[in-house]
């Protein structure tokens, strides 16, 4: 992770998803920025920070599974069993 200010401050272009959500990074939703103009305004968010949170969230969720059980059962697999 080489840090360059200009790169960090240039997120990928916006794509609209719904009236209230957009994406910039693949599979990462963000609020429609127009909804954060009156009461709470968005912070400066370098790319590394967005990606850090997204990855940490995934890490945390995996941790929470492990914390409660040794293994997670796949519903897709069980549904295949039903079909057989």
């Amino acid at each position: 992770m080489k840090y360059r200010y200009q790169e960090e401050m240039s997120p990928p272009p916006v794509q609209r998803v719904t009236d209230v959500a957009i994406t910039r990074f693949e599979h990462v939703f963000e609020v429609e920025p127009g909804l954060m103009t009156e009461h709470v305004t968005q912070q400066t968010f370098p790319n590394w920070d967005t990606l850090r949170l997204v990855r940490s969230r995934a890490d945390h969720l995996a941790w929470m599974h492990r914390h409660f059980a040794d293994k997670v059962i796949s519903g897709e697999e069980l549904l295949d069993d039903l079909d057989e």
Binding site: V28, F29, E30, V31, P33, M36, V40, Q42, Q43, F45, D49, T50, L53, V54
Partner: peptide, 8 residues
């Protein structure tokens, strides 16, 4: 929600 709102 930090990345979603760009507000953490």
């Amino acid at each position: 929600t930090g990345d979603f709102y760009r507000f953490r």
